[in-house]
């Protein structure tokens, strides 16, 4: 890999984002930094996670500084209210982003009057943050159910670890975003919906997240889930399942950005209505307005039956 690649973020884009605390939609820059990546990715990865493809063991702080320069240029141009920094791993894992780099980022946020910094981390690394920066930390909880999270997904942390991290963050005024996985391997469509709703319910009831982000499983290269999918043992969830989850969520804001939505490797319905449904889901994520989810397509009937079928079949029927 050429050095020059290590000096550029994996990706960077501008987007609209719900500033849920203020109930308005603002400009947001999302950056995916190329870091050394999640420490579990090589040894014992999560079954659906293919992010290791965006990381590189050779990344040094030097490289990251270069990447941040690139980000800074963009910030200057776009003047976002929100900055999202993702690392294909944990922001707080010093092996990925050192104390030094994190400080640099906090500095940038302050310098450019960015109102909110959003990062992601596994809970075991969450021990500190800059109290002067308004932050939101996303944690890949996936499910409140330890069996689902650890046996099916292979996440490797307990719900208790999550709640401890959550409580710590709240104690220092940091918001917590919980990621939930819609359709881990081996759960059928309906079981997956139920699992997510169960998670939402608990998080909502116990106020264990400020915002919840639903991730419908998509088929990432080189993952276990991809093998399942290739051999006919997995179908990404229906978009209707995401809609169903969003419709039945609680008071906690719930957002969802269906990666690869409407594609074979992403959550999809019949491919005819997918565009519209993805748009509605995104719209809901910005507005939290349930009305936008009142959608219909003939394939909704198929989805309903699909839930029955996959329950007993334990795999998608390919016809």
């Amino acid at each position: 890999m050429a050095l020059v690649m290590l000096n550029k973020p994996v990706a960077l884009w501008t987007d609209k984002e719900l500033f849920w605390e203020r109930n308005r939609v603002v400009d947001c820059i999302t950056v995916i930094l190329r870091t050394r990546g999640c420490y579990r990715a090589q040894r014992d990865p999560c079954r659906m996670c293919g992010y290791s493809i965006d990381s590189d063991a050779n990344v040094t702080d030097k490289n990251l500084e270069k990447q941040l320069e690139f980000v800074e240029e963009e910030i200057k141009k776009r003047n976002p209210k929100i900055l999202k920094i993702f690392t294909s791993g944990s922001f707080f894992d010093p092996r990925e982003t050192s104390q030094k780099i994190r400080k640099k980022i906090y500095g940038m946020v302050k310098e450019y009057s960015i109102e909110k910094l959003i990062v992601e981390s596994r809970p075991e690394f969450i021990r500190s943050a800059d109290p002067e920066v308004y932050m939101e930390v996303g944690i890949g909880l996936e499910s409140v159910n330890d069996f689902v999270r650890n046996e099916l997904i292979n996440k490797g942390f307990s719900f208790e670890e999550y709640t401890e991290a959550h409580d710590f963050l709240k104690s220092i005024g940091v918001s917590v975003k919980a990621y939930l996985l819609l359709k881990p391997p081996f759960l059928s469509e309906k079981e997956a919906i139920d699992d997510v709703l169960n998670s939402i319910n608990l998080l909502d009831r116990e106020k264990l997240a400020d915002i919840i982000s639903i991730n419908p499983t998509n088929i990432q290269k080189g993952t276990y889930v991809e093998r399942l999918w290739y051999k006919g043992y997995f179908r990404p969830p229906w978009l209707w399942s995401a809609v169903d989850v969003l419709k039945n969520s609680g008071d906690t804001p719930v957002i969802c950005d269906p990666v690869a939505g409407g594609k074979a490797r992403g959550p999809h319905n019949c491919y005819k209505c997918d565009g519209e449904v993805v748009k509605a889901i995104k719209n809901f994520s910005l507005t939290q307005n349930r009305d936008v989810l009142n959608l219909y397509c003939d394939c909704i009937e198929e989805w309903k039956d699909y839930m029955l079928i996959e329950r007993i079949a334990r795999l998608p029927l390919q016809l």
């Binding site: 009937e301 198929e302 039956d305 699909y306 029955l308 079928i309 007993i312 079949a313 029927l317 016809l319």
Partner: peptide, 9 residues
């Protein structure tokens, strides 16, 4: 299950 899946196709 196959009967219903087939119906949808």
């Amino acid at each position: 299950a196959m009967a219903i899946a087939s119906a949808h196709k």
